[in-house]
């Protein structure tokens, strides 16, 4: 059994969180509140050292006054606490949303539309290996039917109804595969935690 007090802290906190599997209880409540509080404290320090100081205050101290613009935008978030000027908070929010949309829209068109389209089109070269050609055709049919499922402007009746039903079958097959894959990954996380308890803490395994 470990003599390192930090291993003990880690193990006891792990058990506190695991106790939720039985039901909500004071130990879980303690672990949860400690986790949230410690994480908030950690991130305040993290952002000061990794963001605010090197990316704002140091350049400002070096006379780069253009950094007053982000400082001002950041300070506007705090106007929420002053009712008379609380509307100012919308300026940085608008800036953030506009920046996010402006940056992501071209990237989405590039990565999720044009490249996916290119990868889905079936060409004679896809049949160099007959089996991979057949799979390419299945993928093409799946993409077309799935796109039709996500078409909202028409009622899914008749041919549209049939193809969208095939689309949902493709989606569910995809979800099934994804479910199995992700559960495997989660089980490996659990194994990691159990190994920590049995190894560094209890010393039952190497």
């Amino acid at each position: 059994m470990s003599s390192d007090p930090w291993i003990w802290v880690g193990a006891l906190l792990t058990l506190m969180i695991f106790s939720f599997l039985y039901k909500d209880n004071p130990f879980y409540k303690f672990g949860e509140h400690l986790f949230v509080g410690v994480a908030n404290g950690y991130y305040i320090v993290f952002y000061w050292h990794n963001s605010l100081r090197p990316n704002l205050f140091e350049p400002l101290g070096a006379g780069e006054f253009i950094y007053l613009v982000p400082l001002l935008l950041g300070l506007m978030y705090f106007t929420r606490f002053i009712p008379k000027v609380s509307w100012l908070v919308r300026i940085p929010i608008g800036f953030m949303i506009g920046w996010g949309a402006g940056l992501s829209i071209p990237a989405l068109f590039q990565a999720e539309v044009l490249r996916q389209l290119e990868g889905t089109v079936v060409a004679p070269s896809s049949f160099t290996n007959p089996m991979s050609g057949i799979w390419s055709l299945i993928i093409l049919v799946g993409v077309i039917c799935t796109l039709i499922y996500f078409f909202f402007s028409k009622e899914h009746k008749g041919i549209l109804g049939h193809t969208s039903r095939i689309g949902i079958i493709f989606i569910m097959i995809g979800f099934g595969a994804s479910f199995g894959y992700t559960v495997m990954a989660r089980v490996s996380l659990l194994i990691g935690r159990i190994q920590f308890l049995l190894g560094p803490w209890l010393g039952l395994i190497d």
Partner: peptide
Amino acid sequence: TEAQFGFAAAING
């Protein structure tokens, strides 16, 4: 909190 699983633990609570 920003901590992913701290957030999940709090939602469970």
